[in-house]
């Protein structure tokens, strides 16, 4: 029993660490902020969950297990939120490589670099009056 649990825990830890490594790799290899955000979010969440599972298997005592569960829940709840907020700002500020993009249905044809843009706060509701002027 102890050996099996140890092997399972070690496998979880190694897989989680590998996923963290791929997150870093994706951060370096991907071309723009939005794709990097993908790399920083998904393998990361899975990796931290796996590491938490490994820790819960190996650590004795319920106190640590509950706290690891709490970390896992927080991580799955908060990672999408921070990813959304960062990528929303990134999209509105055009940190987006349109040459690598098949279709952009939210918006907007490529526009000239000098055009006025980015004058709305991040929380402003999307403008209703002029649907084509902004993201649509």
């Amino acid at each position: 029993m102890g050996v099996v649990a140890d092997v399972v825990a070690a496998t979880c830890l190694l897989l989680g660490s590998l996923l963290c490594l791929t997150a870093g790799l994706g951060l370096v290899r991907f071309p723009d902020v939005l794709t990097r955000m993908h790399a920083g979010t998904k393998p990361q969440v899975l990796g931290i969950l796996l590491i938490m599972v490994g820790g819960a298997i190996r650590l004795q005592g319920w106190s640590a297990t509950w706290m690891l569960l709490l970390v896992a829940v927080f991580q799955t709840l908060t990672a999408p939120i921070s990813a959304h907020m960062v990528s929303r700002v990134a999209y509105r500020r055009r940190h987006v490589r349109r040459d690598r993009m098949v279709v952009d249905e939210l918006g907007v044809a490529p526009r000239s670099p000098g055009e006025a843009r980015g004058d709305e706060p991040a929380d402003a509701a999307p403008s209703r009056g002029s649907p084509r002027a902004r993201e649509g």
Partner: peptide, 28 residues
């Protein structure tokens, strides 16, 4: 924003490293 993403990822990797150490040393 790239740096924000990188910092976020770095902190989570640090958390993962702490978790690995805590797990393998059985040190809660």
């Amino acid at each position: 924003l790239d740096r924000v993403v990188a910092t976020d990822t770095l902190l989570i990797i640090i958390a993962a490293g702490l978790a690995v150490h805590a797990t393998l040393a059985r040190d809660p």
